[in-house]
Measured scan of single mutants.
Amino acid sequence: HNLTITQGKLFFHYNPKLCLSEIHKMEEVSGTKGRQERNDIALKTNGDQASCENELLKFSYIRTSFDKILLRWEPYWPPDFRDLLGFMLFYKEAPYQNVTEFDGQDACGSNSWTVVDIDPPLRSNDPKSQNHPGWLMRGLKPWTQYAIFVKTLVTFSDERRTYGAKSDIIYVQTDATNPSVPLDPISVSNSSSQIILKWKPPSDPNGNITHYLVFWERQAEDSELFELDYCLKGLKLPSRTWSPPFESEDSQKHNQSEYEDSAGECCSCPKTDSQILKELEESSFRKTFEDYLHNVVFVPRKTSSGTGAEDPRPSRKRRSLGDVGNVTVAVPTVAAFPNTSSTSVPTSPEEHRPFEKVVNKESLVISGLRHFTGYRIELQACNQDTPEERCSVAAYVSARTMPEAKADDIVGPVTHEIFENNVVHLMWQEPKEPNGLIVLYEVSYRRYGDEELHLCVSRKHFALERGCRLRGLSPGNYSVRIRATSLAGNGSWTEPTYFYVTDYLDVPSNIA
């Protein structure tokens, strides 16, 4: 807008934040220059609390790290170098490059900038070799853009010569660093050979998330399962459950009422301010606690030095998902009996873990797994792929695949051998790939016309006998059925096997 004052003059007093240069501009645009008398524009009460600059400061050096910015700028000295009290560095987070010096300023003089007072450097006698002032900004957020400017702080001049310097606002972004852990990993099994893994992005990506790394490792069953005799009275049979499938998407929606109208769909109840505040506090606490764990609990591995020492970490090797089922080394339970199943799973520490690289999504279907087997899954978020990966501390989750139908069934015939004193040795093959492992066998036998009897055969007993022995049988026709019990439950009964026990007292003698 054009402003013209045809008559009258300007009068400025007691404006401590208004620089004289701005008042002189007002004289020019209003056409009143030359009308004012000496005392109409006070030299001592206008701009006496402001830094009124008329020179431009330029930054000469900028260096960044993930949490620091090192700045240096060209030296500046007023005509009387004693008038320079120091520099004021202003900075704040700036997602967009549209910041002005006066953003967030209120009537009390406060604003949204963080201000650092910096002492002037030592003055050199040689004007050509003056030290460049600077400042190291610490405690910054990774991968965050900051708006920065600097200006001088000078003393009051009796001659009211307006001098000083100020830089333009520059924008500097800190470097990326390792992201925080992925949030809320959930693993479920939808079949006997697959596990579905879902997660949420890290709360602090500290860069642009480029991919996720998912490692999985087959877990050995508890050692007590191999040692305890679950045929003993009072000892509860062990059981394991597989990871249940995901709930429906509708039930997972946030901010939804727990109660549904019987007449149909209901609208979600909005969260109160107290609920939102509580969630923010919980989120802040979780982030602080995660940072504490990362800094205190997890110790970084030592990389190899120039002395030739090897990095103890196993090298990563990509495998196809079809090879995942046989990740671990199978060892027989008892070496003397080769027909026992290889369900003991000690994992070799030198073995390469299978892994998958996930790009542009937060889910993965891990296939080719062994049925009813526990897996430990390790999830890392990465925001750099080359020249070397920059990934987060791992988040861990466990899951067990679903049982395989008929995996616990005894394959092959049940054979028998009759000894003296009416002892019958029953023999059968253990299931080759049971659900988890076989903890015991149930032997059901009966003599024709009598009630059915049951015998429990422990895992250890089966390994020693290759089956079991029935003792003290009365003469007669017998039928026997056997079924295995694994961590997933009972298998199917075998087809009945028949044998006849004679009275050993009636056996004919070869003595003449």
Results as ranks from 00 to 15, higher is better:
residue 203 S to K: 15
residue 203 S to E: 10
residue 204 D to T: 02
residue 208 N to H: 04
residue 209 I to L: 04
residue 209 I to C: 11
residue 211 H to E: 15
residue 211 H to P: 01
residue 213 L to A: 12
residue 213 L to S: 08
residue 214 V to N: 00
residue 214 V to S: 03
residue 214 V to M: 15
residue 215 F to N: 10
residue 216 W to F: 12
residue 216 W to K: 06
residue 216 W to G: 14
residue 217 E to D: 12
residue 217 E to P: 12
residue 217 E to I: 02
residue 219 Q to K: 10
residue 219 Q to C: 04
residue 219 Q to Y: 09
residue 220 A to C: 15
residue 220 A to N: 12
residue 222 D to R: 14
residue 223 S to E: 08
residue 223 S to N: 12
residue 224 E to W: 04
residue 224 E to V: 15
residue 224 E to T: 06
residue 224 E to Y: 10
residue 225 L to C: 11
residue 225 L to H: 08
residue 226 F to L: 11
residue 226 F to N: 09
residue 226 F to M: 11
residue 227 E to T: 06
residue 228 L to Y: 15
residue 229 D to C: 09
residue 231 C to W: 01
residue 231 C to I: 01
residue 231 C to A: 01
residue 232 L to C: 15
residue 232 L to W: 11
residue 232 L to E: 12
residue 233 K to R: 14
residue 233 K to W: 02
residue 235 L to M: 11
residue 236 K to D: 04
residue 236 K to E: 12
residue 236 K to S: 13
residue 237 L to Y: 15
residue 237 L to A: 14
residue 238 P to Y: 09
residue 238 P to I: 15
residue 239 S to H: 04
residue 239 S to E: 10
residue 239 S to A: 10
residue 241 T to G: 08
residue 241 T to W: 03
residue 242 W to K: 09
residue 243 S to K: 03
residue 243 S to M: 13
residue 245 P to W: 08
residue 246 F to A: 07
residue 248 S to I: 15
residue 249 E to A: 13
residue 250 D to L: 14
residue 251 S to L: 12
residue 251 S to E: 13
residue 251 S to N: 13
residue 253 K to V: 02
residue 254 H to W: 09
residue 254 H to S: 15
residue 255 N to F: 04
residue 255 N to R: 03
residue 256 Q to E: 08
residue 256 Q to C: 02
residue 257 S to K: 10
residue 258 E to T: 12
residue 263 A to Y: 10
residue 265 E to A: 12
residue 265 E to R: 14
residue 267 C to S: 09
residue 267 C to I: 15
residue 267 C to G: 09
residue 267 C to V: 13
residue 267 C to H: 15
residue 269 C to S: 08
residue 269 C to Y: 13
residue 269 C to P: 07
residue 270 P to F: 15
residue 271 K to H: 07
residue 271 K to I: 10
residue 271 K to A: 14
residue 271 K to V: 03
residue 272 T to A: 15
residue 272 T to H: 07
residue 272 T to Y: 07
residue 273 D to C: 03
residue 274 S to P: 15
residue 274 S to E: 09
residue 274 S to V: 08
residue 277 L to N: 14
residue 278 K to N: 08
residue 278 K to E: 06
residue 279 E to L: 12
residue 280 L to I: 10
residue 281 E to C: 04
residue 281 E to A: 09
residue 282 E to P: 15
residue 283 S to N: 04
residue 283 S to E: 11
residue 284 S to L: 06
residue 285 F to Q: 05
residue 285 F to A: 15
residue 285 F to D: 14
residue 287 K to H: 15
residue 287 K to P: 10
residue 287 K to N: 04
residue 288 T to E: 10
residue 289 F to R: 06
residue 289 F to Q: 11
residue 290 E to P: 07
residue 291 D to S: 06
residue 291 D to Q: 06
residue 292 Y to V: 08
residue 292 Y to Q: 01
residue 294 H to E: 11
residue 294 H to T: 02
residue 294 H to L: 15
residue 295 N to M: 15
residue 295 N to V: 15
residue 296 V to N: 14
residue 296 V to I: 06
residue 297 V to T: 08
residue 298 F to D: 08
residue 298 F to N: 15
residue 298 F to G: 11
residue 300 P to Q: 05
residue 300 P to N: 06
residue 301 R to V: 06
residue 301 R to K: 03
residue 302 K to I: 09
residue 303 T to G: 09
residue 303 T to L: 04
residue 304 S to R: 03
residue 305 S to P: 10
residue 306 G to R: 13
residue 306 G to N: 10
residue 307 T to E: 15
residue 308 G to F: 02
residue 309 A to V: 11
residue 309 A to N: 14
residue 309 A to E: 10
residue 310 E to G: 14
residue 312 P to A: 05
residue 314 P to Q: 02
residue 314 P to R: 06
residue 314 P to E: 03
residue 314 P to K: 07
residue 316 R to L: 05
residue 318 R to L: 07
residue 318 R to E: 13
residue 318 R to F: 14
residue 319 R to S: 11
residue 319 R to T: 07
residue 320 S to H: 08
residue 320 S to G: 15
residue 321 L to I: 05
residue 323 D to W: 12
residue 324 V to Y: 04
residue 324 V to S: 08
residue 324 V to G: 11
residue 325 G to V: 10
residue 325 G to M: 08
residue 327 V to D: 12
residue 327 V to Y: 11
residue 327 V to C: 10
residue 328 T to L: 15
residue 329 V to P: 12
residue 331 V to L: 13
residue 332 P to L: 08
residue 332 P to G: 05
residue 333 T to A: 13
residue 333 T to M: 13
residue 335 A to Q: 05
residue 336 A to P: 13
residue 336 A to E: 03
residue 337 F to H: 07
residue 337 F to R: 13
residue 338 P to V: 09
residue 338 P to A: 08
residue 339 N to R: 10
residue 339 N to P: 11
residue 341 S to L: 13
residue 342 S to N: 06
residue 343 T to W: 06
residue 343 T to S: 07
residue 343 T to H: 09
residue 344 S to G: 13
residue 344 S to W: 11
residue 345 V to I: 15
residue 346 P to I: 15
residue 346 P to S: 14
residue 347 T to V: 06
residue 347 T to P: 07
residue 348 S to N: 15
residue 349 P to L: 10
residue 349 P to V: 03
residue 350 E to R: 08
residue 350 E to Q: 11
residue 351 E to K: 14
residue 351 E to V: 14
residue 351 E to R: 05
residue 352 H to F: 14
residue 353 R to S: 11
residue 353 R to Y: 09
residue 353 R to A: 01
residue 355 F to P: 10
residue 357 K to F: 13
residue 357 K to S: 14
residue 358 V to W: 14
residue 359 V to C: 08
residue 360 N to I: 13
residue 361 K to D: 03
residue 361 K to T: 08
residue 362 E to I: 12
residue 362 E to M: 06
residue 362 E to P: 12
residue 363 S to A: 14
residue 366 I to G: 00
residue 366 I to V: 08
residue 367 S to A: 15
residue 368 G to P: 08
residue 368 G to S: 11
residue 369 L to G: 03
residue 371 H to M: 02
residue 372 F to P: 00
residue 373 T to A: 09
residue 373 T to Q: 09
residue 375 Y to C: 02
residue 375 Y to L: 04
residue 375 Y to A: 03
residue 375 Y to N: 00
residue 376 R to M: 08
residue 377 I to N: 01
residue 377 I to C: 07
residue 378 E to H: 13
residue 378 E to P: 01
residue 379 L to K: 00
residue 379 L to D: 00
residue 380 Q to H: 08
residue 381 A to C: 00
residue 381 A to R: 02
residue 385 D to R: 08
residue 385 D to A: 14
residue 386 T to L: 02
residue 387 P to M: 15
residue 387 P to D: 02
residue 388 E to Y: 14
residue 389 E to P: 09
residue 389 E to I: 02
residue 391 C to H: 05
residue 391 C to N: 01
residue 393 V to H: 09
residue 394 A to G: 08
residue 395 A to T: 07
residue 395 A to P: 02
residue 397 V to Y: 11
residue 397 V to Q: 01
residue 397 V to R: 15
residue 398 S to M: 05
residue 399 A to E: 10
residue 400 R to N: 10
residue 402 M to T: 10
residue 404 E to M: 06
residue 405 A to V: 13
residue 406 K to D: 06
residue 407 A to P: 04
residue 408 D to W: 00
residue 408 D to E: 01
residue 409 D to K: 09
residue 410 I to A: 09
residue 411 V to I: 05
residue 412 G to P: 13
residue 412 G to D: 10
residue 413 P to G: 07
residue 415 T to G: 04
residue 416 H to S: 09
residue 416 H to A: 10
residue 416 H to E: 04
residue 417 E to P: 02
residue 419 F to W: 15
residue 419 F to T: 06
residue 420 E to F: 02
residue 421 N to Q: 15
residue 421 N to M: 05
residue 421 N to S: 08
residue 423 V to K: 05
residue 423 V to S: 08
residue 424 V to T: 03
residue 424 V to K: 01
residue 425 H to T: 09
residue 425 H to S: 12
residue 425 H to Q: 08
residue 426 L to M: 04
residue 426 L to R: 01
residue 427 M to I: 12
residue 429 Q to E: 14
residue 429 Q to L: 09
residue 430 E to F: 04
residue 431 P to V: 11
residue 433 E to Q: 08
residue 433 E to S: 15
residue 434 P to L: 01
residue 435 N to K: 00
residue 435 N to G: 02
residue 435 N to T: 00
residue 438 I to Y: 03
residue 438 I to W: 02
residue 438 I to E: 02
residue 438 I to R: 01
residue 439 V to Q: 12
residue 439 V to H: 07
residue 439 V to M: 08
residue 440 L to V: 05
residue 440 L to N: 15
residue 440 L to R: 03
residue 443 V to K: 00
residue 443 V to P: 01
residue 443 V to W: 00
residue 443 V to T: 02
residue 443 V to E: 00
residue 444 S to A: 07
residue 447 R to F: 04
residue 447 R to M: 04
residue 448 Y to K: 04
residue 448 Y to G: 00
residue 452 E to V: 08
residue 452 E to C: 12
residue 455 L to Q: 07
residue 456 C to A: 01
residue 457 V to G: 01
residue 457 V to T: 13
residue 457 V to P: 00
residue 459 R to Q: 14
residue 461 H to G: 08
residue 465 E to C: 07
residue 466 R to C: 13
residue 467 G to D: 01
residue 467 G to M: 07
residue 467 G to A: 07
residue 469 R to L: 07
residue 471 R to S: 12
residue 472 G to E: 04
residue 474 S to D: 06
residue 475 P to I: 10
residue 475 P to A: 12
residue 475 P to K: 09
residue 476 G to D: 00
residue 477 N to R: 09
residue 477 N to Q: 06
residue 478 Y to I: 01
residue 479 S to G: 05
residue 481 R to Y: 11
residue 481 R to F: 04
residue 482 I to Y: 00
residue 483 R to N: 05
residue 483 R to Y: 02
residue 484 A to T: 12
residue 485 T to S: 07
residue 485 T to C: 14
residue 486 S to P: 01
residue 489 G to M: 03
residue 491 G to S: 07
residue 492 S to L: 13
residue 493 W to F: 08
residue 494 T to D: 01
residue 495 E to M: 01
residue 496 P to F: 14
residue 498 Y to S: 06
residue 499 F to K: 02
residue 499 F to P: 01
residue 500 Y to D: 04
residue 500 Y to F: 12
residue 500 Y to E: 13
residue 501 V to C: 08
residue 501 V to N: 08
residue 501 V to D: 02
residue 502 T to I: 05
residue 502 T to V: 12
residue 502 T to D: 09
residue 504 Y to K: 10
residue 504 Y to I: 07
residue 505 L to R: 04
residue 505 L to D: 03
residue 505 L to M: 05
residue 505 L to I: 15
residue 506 D to I: 06
residue 506 D to Y: 05
residue 509 S to P: 13
residue 509 S to Q: 15
residue 509 S to H: 05
